[in-house]
């Protein structure tokens, strides 16, 4: 069972890593550095709302968020299993971690659509 699932989970993990690497540095630079320093003006709420009005953008946000959550879930699964010696409980830990990622994705969908 796990043998067949692992490649898919890893693809989600690796996709999440790519998405996070592409988007997070830009967001941190904009919202964490350039905007607080006044180099770039803060966007208005109306501006941001107009941006996510397009269904395509909403879909992209959901995909990006969910992949990032799967990336985190995969890391938390293995890190917690190895640090806390939870290897025996792998099935449970995996369900909790990936379940949380799915819940996050569902939450994003209900909030955005």
């Amino acid at each position: 069972m796990r043998r067949r699932l692992e490649p898919y989970l890893w693809l989600l993990f690796s996709g999440g890593g790519v998405v996070a690497a592409l988007t997070l540095p830009v967001l941190v630079l904009l919202f964490g550095v350039l905007m607080p320093l006044g180099v770039v003006a803060w966007p208005s709420a109306a501006h941001l709302r107009a941006l996510v009005d397009a269904p395509l953008v909403r879909g992209a946000v959901v995909v990006a968020l969910t992949l990032c959550l799967f990336h985190a879930a995969h890391r938390i699964r293995f890190t917690s299993e190895e640090l806390l010696g939870l290897r025996r409980w792998d099935a449970l830990v995996a369900v909790l971690c990936y379940g949380a990622a799915v819940a996050g994705g569902v939450t994003a969908i209900t909030l955005l659509f």
Partner: peptide, 10 residues
């Protein structure tokens, strides 16, 4: 090889 194996599985 993970990429290879994952793509071959999918």
């Amino acid at each position: 090889y993970k990429v290879t194996a994952a793509l071959r599985s999918v």
